[in-house]
Simulated scan of single mutants.
Amino acid sequence: MTATEARMAVALAQQEGWNPGLNDAEVFLAVNQEGMLCIHFDGQPIGFSSVMRYDSRYAFFGLYMVQEEFRKLGFGMAMTQKRLEMAGKRCIGLDGVTENVTIYSHIGFRSSYRNIRFCMPEAIVEQCLANSQLEQHSDITVIPLSSVSPHLLTAFDRFYFQACRSHFLKVWCYQEDVIALAAQYQGELAGYIVIRPCVIGSKIGPLFAQSRAIAESLLFTALALSNRPPFYLDIPEPNQNAINLANDNKMVIISEVMRMYRGTPPPINLAGVYGITSLEMG
């Protein structure tokens, strides 16, 4: 996929209501140029998809779109077959919209759990920040993520993601206009958060933390630094502490996707995933 085609893919994502990040085209190419795919008809790009091969064991499918007039003509499946070929014997993850779950099941994917998207409108953010002043955790320190060594960040991230992704983190966490913070508990790295600007508001992800208190400290500190509401957060349903955090802070459910796997995924500590990285990258 060329840079022009990547921008076209993000523009189509915006048209479809996906609310992409402002830097997504450049970031996706920087971390995954070989895995960004485009299909053409009559010399024109008509569909886009991606396969992110994180390591020899795990890959992730995302950014799957075909222009409306070319749907149900086999172009999408052609891209998927190419992605399956590129993924090889790796376990593959994806976040599928409800209407496509049956289609994915026919090619070997199995439903695992829902990722639920919550929204924090500006009024809710203001209330959360006011409430956060009432509850301070003296043993939790929030610092810039840039203060954490890349090696330490990568090692911490691996507890909550299915592969080591050092190069990805170097790009994702330091893209233009992001807010990226880390939390220390008793002097040790205990969580981190990234908020990236989107066409509408901002998306939070990842938000990984060893406890709800740490996740809230990161979240409220990051929200106080950002001026781009509303905020969107994708939470894995099995993490009840994360769901409770969202509900207790009056976040609003706006959509959901099904996390599916083809093969057995590497184990992670899902209890520490308070927000996934993105629906496009896992």
Rank of each mutant, 00 (worst) to 15 (best):
Y160M: 07
S166G: 08
Q162V: 09
S105V: 04
K170Q: 12
A183Y: 04
A130E: 12
R165S: 08
F118H: 07
L189W: 09
R114F: 13
C173F: 08
V171H: 10
L134G: 03
Y185L: 14
S112A: 10
T154A: 14
T141G: 00
T102H: 01
S138A: 03
Y113Q: 03
V101L: 00
S105C: 12
L129I: 08
D157L: 10
S147V: 01
S132P: 00
C164A: 13
G187C: 03
S166W: 02
S149H: 11
A130K: 09
P121A: 06
V148E: 01
I140K: 05
I140W: 08
A123Y: 02
S147Q: 10
R114I: 03
G108R: 13
A190M: 12
R114W: 11
L181W: 01
G108K: 13
A183R: 06
C128R: 00
C128S: 01
D177T: 13
Y185G: 03
F109M: 08
I124K: 08
V171T: 11
D177G: 13
Y104C: 08
R165Q: 06
E188L: 10
L152I: 13
L153F: 05
S111T: 01
E135T: 02
A130Y: 02
V125D: 05
I116M: 13
R158Q: 14
V171E: 13
S146H: 06
Q175N: 10
I179M: 10
A130C: 02
I107H: 13
C119R: 15
H106E: 13
V148K: 03
V101R: 02
Y174R: 05
M120D: 02
Y113C: 07
E99N: 02
Y113N: 06
L134H: 09
Q186A: 12
P144R: 01
T141D: 02
E135H: 02
V178F: 12
A183G: 11
L134Y: 04
Y160F: 15
I140S: 04
K170M: 05
R158G: 07
E176V: 06
Q136R: 07
T102M: 00
N115P: 08
I143C: 06
E122M: 05
E99R: 06
H167A: 10
R110K: 12
N115A: 14
G187D: 04
P144K: 04
T154M: 06
S111Y: 03
V142M: 02
R165T: 08
A190L: 11
L129A: 09
D139F: 00
I107V: 15
Q136C: 03
V148I: 15
